[in-house]
Write a protein that binds this DNA or RNA. Structure first.
Lengths: 253, 253
DNA sequence: AATGAGCGTTGCAGTGAATGCAACACTCCT
DNA sequence: AGGAGTGTTGCATTCACTGCAACGCTCATT
């Protein structure tokens, strides 16, 4: 809506790919160098971009700090964290918490596996939306038309042979997930990694977040992992209860 | 420099404090509601802010994702991480990695203590700049005038009785740190937590990052923690060597 | 039901802020 | 020295942003 701001903000994802100099930024924005310079200067004043010693620009520290605050303000995270830790203590595997927002699913918390073999993922990283178990739960709860529209719009990268190949398959999977109230990803993202996930619901019954337990084949088989499902669901329900205010929040934890 | 962008970016820290509605944003920016609306819309289109169900705005998922990418692009982090993990395995305490950028010091990596008592800190969070051991190292390396200017500009919150009280004390501490090549924080941020830190230098000899080991009194005394100093310095030097390209980067780790 | 307050939203006219240009400063090659 | 490639600045033009005022909507209140 606002041309100037639009252009300025377009610079950020561009720099996220890697540092760029003034000319490159101007080119990719399709504006004159001087225009790009002034936009970058404004971003710089706000700490959103940083000028490194070779004069090129990259994303700045303030951006990271802001994102940090943004995450801390997500109160579901606060509530869920101790539960995730407890679950991790019980099963030993990696535990994730994710939320959906505007066509993206994001990990917002993680408790690392206690086993030496860990999976790669990072808090703040967008999830592989077409295959991740948590993504399925979050998308399955969208209103019908929104879900369809999103499914059509997405890319369906074939991470592995078991990745969701196309919108139809995805929508069928979502229907199933919606039906059963939990989800899995059995090697759909990385060949040797399986996940089981359960939804966390708010006071209105909508799915507010999703959590999962992930483990590589070398540690437990998919079948063994599935035996954890009741535990995962109980944990998710406990978080739901607290989040929706059914259980009074306990100060001492 | 650019009014519109300036205003738009000013909205972000404002929302970082917590969700706000249109009127509040407009007031705090000192602009008309319609102006604020259009700025927010643009931010929204870029996923930088999110409109929650009660219509209020908060920071959005894209911001978090961008910050994530920004951190992954910091190659010093990539290089340092395995060293930090190894150090953690050796001593068991919390290990931090921090960088300085435009008047701020930011934690960019962290390996959690293996002891049950952990300290609070988060990747991406700005460091308590006047007391943290890593901050001292990073600031001690600034050019004289810049260091003075910054020292004058900072706030000096008295987190504890041992916090740095004022610019003079801070500058003296920085001089000492610069001299000895390592730094400590003995209860200056939290009464019961001590840190030892060492600098990581780049090819040009400047301090590019700093790392620290932190532990609460209940686990080890300050004196015991200080015995780890040689180990911390060796680790920092190893990272420095790799970062500055003196040691060829080993693919197999 | 009707009233009104408190929001967010939209069209519009005026104007000031952003734009692109061209000239300049600077560094790094050859 | 010359020249190519940067980033930077001043300036005139104009177009995009602004503030206003009117509208629509939801919620309380009577």
């Amino acid at each position: 809506m606002s041309q100037t701001v639009d252009r300025a903000l377009s610079i950020l994802p561009l720099l996220a790919e890697g540092p760029a100099d003034l000319g490159q930024v101007a080119d990719r924005l399709g504006v004159h160098k001087s225009t790009a310079l002034r936009l970058l200067r404004t971003l710089h004043d706000h700490g959103m971009v940083y000028r490194q010693s070779d004069q090129r620009y990259r994303l700045g520290a303030r951006l990271i700090a802001l994102a940090q605050e943004a995450m801390e303000n997500l109160d579901i995270r606060e509530i869920a964290h101790p539960h995730l830790v407890r679950l991790n203590e019980q099963c030993g595997h990696t535990v994730h918490l994710a939320v959906y927002e505007e066509d993206e699913v994001l990990y917002i918390d993680k408790v690392e596996s206690r086993y030496p073999v860990r999976m790669y993922s990072r808090i703040g990283k967008p999830v592989a939306i077409t295959v991740a178990a948590v993504a399925k739960l979050l998308l399955a709860d969208l209103p019908e038309h929104e879900r369809r529209a999103l499914a059509e719009k997405l890319d369906y990268p074939m991470y592995t042979a078991r990745s969701t190949p196309h919108p139809d398959a995805f929508l069928r999977e979502l229907a199933k997930v919606r039906e059963q109230g939990w989800a899995t990803d059995l090697g759909g993202h990385e060949e040797s990694i399986n996940c089981v996930a359960a939804p966390i619901t708010g006071a209105d019954g909508r799915v507010a977040a999703a959590m999962s337990v992930s483990a590589p084949n070398v540690v437990v088989t998919a079948d063994e992992l599935l035996t954890l499902l009741p535990l995962v669901r109980r944990t998710a329900d406990a978080i739901s209860g607290e989040y929706s205010g059914r259980n009074p929040t306990k100060d001492a934890e």
